[in-house]
């Protein structure tokens, strides 16, 4: 008969595997802190150096950090650029993304769903520089022809590109969220005589709300953080826009365009890292807000 007790050698693989899994979990946290640490370290030189004013950084619209005679480092115009492009893209991507999620999950026949999902995944895999190229070579002349604007590299162009990039994310994650709604809810609604549309907006959307919210926020995250496409398609002009046909520059595009020119450790270089921290703070705030919203919902529906 085999002994009931296990020797340490029998348990060794378990201990090893447990250790590796624990390491994976901890490494995610370490990486996040590492990123914060290194970005902060590069920007830190600004803070003790007396003439940096946070108010100017946050609320001034003039950005000219490399100037020899009185550099300006206000990021408000850049923030306005990021915000306007992101808002426009979400205004397009949320209805279309959620709409396709609803269609895929509730109205589509199975074989067509499989085809569409493959197409959507291909759409999600297009590199952003390719989108930027489309913005530059296809949308630019198109926007000039249609709207009569002097230049087609503007908020409209960038917003449309970001929308096209976010829609696949929102659609495929949104579909997952809707598919995860128990079928018993659908039966309950249908058996009460709900039409398919009533079922969607009275039963499925409330039931899937946390997942749909997460899908939208991931799409939003992609739009806020996207760099290459907006760098190529928004026209690179630092000012607070007044119409969707204005050219703008975003926070991300600024970092990408200027970091190569700024000499390491210079004032300009540190400022760009500070812009990075600003961006990080914005996206973290969105993620935290989403987390609270989703959790709050879960607790109240339990």
């Amino acid at each position: 008969m085999k002994p009931l007790r296990r020797s340490i050698f029998d348990r060794l693989p378990e201990i090893l595997i447990e250790g590796v899994i624990r390491l994976c979990g901890v490494s995610a946290i370490l990486l996040v802190f590492g990123i914060f640490f290194f970005v902060f370290r590069e920007a830190y030189g600004l803070l003790p150096g007396g003439d940096f004013r946070l108010g100017h950084f946050l609320f001034d619209t003039h950005w000219n950090p490399a100037s020899q005679s009185g550099p300006a480092y206000g990021t408000l115009a850049l923030l306005a650029g990021t915000a306007s492009v992101t808002l426009l893209s979400m205004a397009i991507a949320i209805p279309f993304g959620l709409g396709s999620a609803i269609y895929l999950s509730e109205f589509c026949v199975p074989y067509r769903r499989e085809t569409l999902k493959v197409v959507i995944e291909i759409l999600a895999a297009i590199p952003s520089v390719v989108w930027g190229f489309i913005g530059l070579m296809v949308m630019n002349p198109l926007i000039i022809a249609v709207t009569g604007a002097p230049i087609g590299l503007n908020i409209l162009n960038g917003g449309l590109l970001l929308a096209l990039m976010s829609i696949p994310i929102i659609a495929s994650l949104g579909e997952d969220a809707l598919k995860a709604v128990p079928d018993s809810y659908r039966e309950a609604g249908l058996a009460l005589g709900a039409s398919r549309w009533q079922l969607v907006y009275r039963v499925l959307l409330p039931a899937a709300r946390p997942g749909l919210l997460a899908a939208v926020l991931l799409g939003l995250g992609r739009a806020v953080g996207e760099t290459m496409a907006v760098l190529m398609a928004t026209g690179h002009s630092v000012h607070v826009p007044t119409s969707v046909l204005d050219s703008v520059r975003t926070l991300t595009a600024t970092i990408a365009a200027e970091l190569g020119e700024a000499s390491v450790g210079s004032h300009h270089y540190q400022l760009l890292f500070l812009v990075g921290i600003y961006l990080l703070a914005i996206t973290s705030a969105f993620n935290l807000a989403a987390d609270f919203l989703v959790r709050g919902r879960r607790r109240s529906s339990r």
Binding site: A191, G193, A194, R202
Partner: peptide
């Protein structure tokens, strides 16, 4: 009307569950 094997109230309030039929 139909009642199912596993109770399947909708994930909304008690009131809205009962009001659901009239609302639609």
């Amino acid at each position: 009307g139909m009642v199912f094997q596993r109770p399947n109230p909708l994930p909304i309030s008690i009131f809205e569950n009962v009001a659901f039929g009239l609302r639609i």
